[in-house]
């Protein structure tokens, strides 16, 4: 009985969330005609996707400060495929994710053996390598980056239009908002499914003790690679849409500060909760924006709030709910 109630509750929450993201927010934007919010919210959704990837690596007990590199890879692959090879965006998008995942497998094979701070620092270095490679490689056009990336064209299958040409919309930003939020929902649904699957249990046991997990006969090396590839896939997808949305990509589009922010989003939301990265991204992004009015004190207030939130809730914002449940 209790299980059914809980399941109904979950379905209700999901439905409410979907309605909120896909119906209420757009209609609020239409009512207030704050069209710029579409862009802001799409960015939040994309950052949440990349942060979800970082959260996944946290899930196997690795601190990943390298997501910026994979987002950069995704963005550049999309930009190059569209502008130089004439690919359609809808083909370039999955390809960017897969390419980022492929790179992450190559890099992950050696570096995933590292743990703790070692892994954290090497991924931090990886972000720098990404930025410097983008500056140095001939195909990425150096510091000038790639600009004038066209908007996504139409996606059709057997003559039926599934997604119309973005340029045909009165407001392409709305299209980007739907694209980003739908992908974000898909991404977190995947995360939720994964964390409640057998793989999720294995990941949690790896987070606690890898030797023990491996001694039971789990192929930890394979799981590490799969999770890291998935994480980078999300980073690549996020970067890819970001490049098309801002119609440009530069070596400085994703740098160390961004990688650290992805990590902070996860921390702030709570590492133990699937929806932590989403909440963390929303709070950090809008918190920073709202504080804009405080002018030169923006940074001071923002960082003080970060420190205070860490002191009061060292296990993330979502841990409020956890402590409430324990008492009852």
């Amino acid at each position: 009985m209790g299980l059914i109630i809980m399941q109904n509750k979950k379905i209700l929450f999901t439905a409410l969330f979907l309605i909120f993201v896909l119906v209420i927010i757009p209609s609020l934007i239409v009512m207030t005609s704050r069209w710029d919010l579409y862009y802001t919210l799409s960015s939040v959704a994309l950052l949440a996707i990349a942060s979800a990837g970082v959260w996944l690596t946290f899930y196997i007990g690795r601190i990943n400060i390298g997501q910026g590199a994979f987002a950069l890879v995704g963005g550049y692959v999309t930009a190059i495929l569209i502008t130089k090879a004439g690919f359609s965006f809808w083909l370039a998008l999955p390809f960017s994710g897969l390419f980022a995942a492929f790179i992450s497998v190559l890099i992950g094979l050696p570096i995933l053996r590292l743990r703790g701070v070692y892994f954290a620092m090497i991924t931090l270095v990886l972000t720098e390598v990404g930025r410097l490679s983008a500056l140095a490689l001939p195909i990425t056009n150096g510091a000038k980056g790639i600009s004038n990336i066209p908007l996504p064209g139409e996606l059709s299958f057997a003559g039926i239009t599934i997604i119309p040409d973005f340029a045909s919309f009165e407001n392409p930003r709305m299209a980007f908002y739907y694209l980003a939020s739908v992908l974000m929902i898909l991404c977190f649904a995947t995360l939720y499914r994964l964390s409640n699957s057998r793989l999720g249990h294995l990941c949690r046991s790896m987070q606690q003790n890898e030797e023990l997990t491996s001694s039971i006969g789990v192929n930890i090396a394979a799981i590490r690679i799969i999770i890291f590839a998935l994480s980078s896939f999300m980073g690549g997808i996020g970067g890819s849409i970001f490049a098309v949305m801002s119609q440009s990509i530069y070596p400085s589009s994703f740098q160390v500060a961004d990688s650290i922010n992805f990590m902070l989003n996860c921390f702030l939301g709570g590492l133990g909760y699937v929806f932590g990265p989403m909440l963390g991204t929303v709070v950090l992004y809008f918190g920073w924006d709202l504080l804009f009015q405080t002018g030169k004190y923006q940074m001071l207030i923002y960082s003080s709030l970060l420190i205070i939130s860490m002191l009061v809730l060292p296990n993330g914002l979502l841990s409020i709910r956890l402590s409430g449940r324990k008492k009852s």
Binding site: Y297, S303, L306, L311, N315
Partner: peptide
Amino acid sequence: ESTMLLAAGLGFFLDAV
């Protein structure tokens, strides 16, 4: 790892100061 958020926040804070 939670101390990393704290350390990063502290870095921002010192920057601001």
